[in-house]
Amino acid sequence: MSYLSDIYNGIKTLLTGMSVTGKYFLNSRKGAITQQYPDNRDTLKMFERFRGEVVMPHDENNEHSCTGCQKCELACPNGSIEIIWDRVIDENTGKKKKIIDQHIYHFGMCTQCGLCVDACPSDAIKWAQNFENSVYDRTQLTRVLNQPGSKVRAGVEE
């Protein structure tokens, strides 16, 4: 008799499974979870904490707040940040002052761990939400974050 009950139970469980998929089939119109990615670019918004790439925000006077302290360079586990710096004499105080010449960011080596942004004492660098990073040549992934002619915002050092 267990032979027949095996068959009965087998068919019953199979039909139960089919009812689950069948329910989704009937609701397939509104239930689809596919994101049609390049088409939904306009509506696709990443969360504000999403770690896409490191950027250095500049204000309208072309000023940033990077003092060249190199803490980000030290914090980076894989050497993606490279700071070329210089010493100039401050016109107001007459003291020697460290300024950045180039804040180089090797995006190709970056693992988006967030340690540099966490380490920055003056919030000079932050995360941007751009995630479309493919390029034809990997040299394009090496970026200079400070814009040409930019200088450090007054009062950041204190």
């Binding site: 904490r49 999403f50 770690r51 967030g114 966490d118 995360w127």
Partner: peptide
Amino acid sequence: NDIFEETCGARLTMNYNIPGGLMQDIH
């Protein structure tokens, strides 16, 4: 994954813990 992305900043490789606590407060 969306919860992680909103709070930690990444979907898979979160790196949200640091020695001493968390990198940011929860969202």
